[in-house]
């Protein structure tokens, strides 16, 4: 992967300012309900810097960060910093809450499953074999020491972007009371409603046979899990990209896409992910959670 260009573009529209940049392989933007050009410059730089910092620190495509260190520790304990420890605690919580379905160590399945729309279905044997290297219960996590079995890997891809959104929002709120919306590749958070409107309006793209939706977001996080274009089809069976870390096999009958609103972006993201992992039970799972959500089947 080539080094991304780290540039910020500022645009003025009729209602305020937009700062746009790329991070974490996604288009990112900050919408600010203010006419103050120096403010958007300052905040845009803060938000982008935080996105790039988290990308650099937690990307699994680099060889100079903590994730590389952990994934190449060959069974030795690695001492991690406060921030990484916080994320590991959080992931451990999520692992328990999902009864093992949300697993930071499930990333290695990607080596086997390439969701390119083809009919390239791996064998059960290959998937089962790979499962030996998966399972958070095999990981020893005792703050600040993390010990992975040799061959195992962790990947913060499932929460990194949402975490970056929340972190950027925290930094932003220390600088301004202006309403702002931070959007990192579809995971987003609004700090407060715009001055001239009761809420932000967020459009959710139509996927498959679903319906597009217009979401009114006053404040808080919004995250989407699922995708129309990442699946495999063989013999008319659709294999979605959501993988069960216990079997190494896709979770069948999961919705095409789930969008969830919650106070923070990490919460929204995790609930959306959990709903996908619930497969056919996604609807009832979401109903139980008492959150605003939009499902597309």
């Amino acid at each position: 992967m080539s080094a991304p260009t780290r540039e910020i573009e500022f645009k003025k529209n009729s209602n305020g300012w937009v700062a746009q940049f790329r991070a974490m392989a996604s288009p990112c933007e900050l919408l600010l309900d203010s006419d103050d050009e120096s403010l958007i410059q300052e905040l845009g730089n803060i938000v982008a810097a935080e996105a790039w910092r988290i990308e650099t620190k937690f990307s699994r495509y680099r060889d100079d960060n903590i994730v590389y260190q952990i994934n190449n520790s060959q069974g030795k304990a690695v001492s991690v910093d406060e921030e990484t420890a916080g994320l590991l605690d959080f992931a451990e919580n999520a692992y328990q809450l999902s009864d093992g379905l949300f697993d930071l160590s499930s990333g290695v399945l990607r080596k086997l499953w390439r969701f390119d729309g083809s009919a390239n279905i791996p064998t059960y044997e290959a998937a089962t074999a790979l499962c030996d290297n998966i399972g958070w219960h095999k990981v020893r996590w005792q703050r600040p020491l993390l010990t992975l079995q040799a061959g195992m890997e962790i990947d913060f891809g499932g929460i990194g972007k949402e975490y970056a959104v929340d972190r950027a929002a925290t930094l932003l709120k220390q600088k301004t009371d202006c309403a702002a919306l931070i959007n990192f590749g579809g995971d987003l958070l609004a700090t407060s409603p715009p001055r001239n409107a009761p809420h932000w309006l967020v459009g959710v793209e139509q996927v498959g046979g679903g319906q597009s939706a217009m979401i009114q977001l006053k404040r808080g996080g919004l995250a989407t899990s699922g995708d129309a274009n990442r699946y495999l089809i063989k013999d008319n069976i659709r294999y979605p990209h959501v993988l069960n870390p216990k079997t190494g096999w896709p979770i069948m009958n999961a919705p095409r896409s789930v969008t969830v609103a919650a106070p923070s972006c990490v919460e929204a993201g995790l609930i959306a992910t959990f709903a996908m992992l619930a497969g056919a039970d996604a609807d009832s799972f979401l109903a139980e959670q008492d959150v605003l959500h939009w499902i597309q089947h």
């Binding site: 009729s14 309900d33 891809g157 972007k161 579809g186 001239n196 409107a197 309006l201 009114q216």
Partner: peptide, 17 residues
């Protein structure tokens, strides 16, 4: 994991119910 991009139509005053 997510490629669907919710598009943000910011500052619109119309609301959809």
């Amino acid at each position: 994991m997510k490629l669907t991009l919710p598009r943000i139509l910011a500052f619109l005053l119309f609301s959809v119910s």
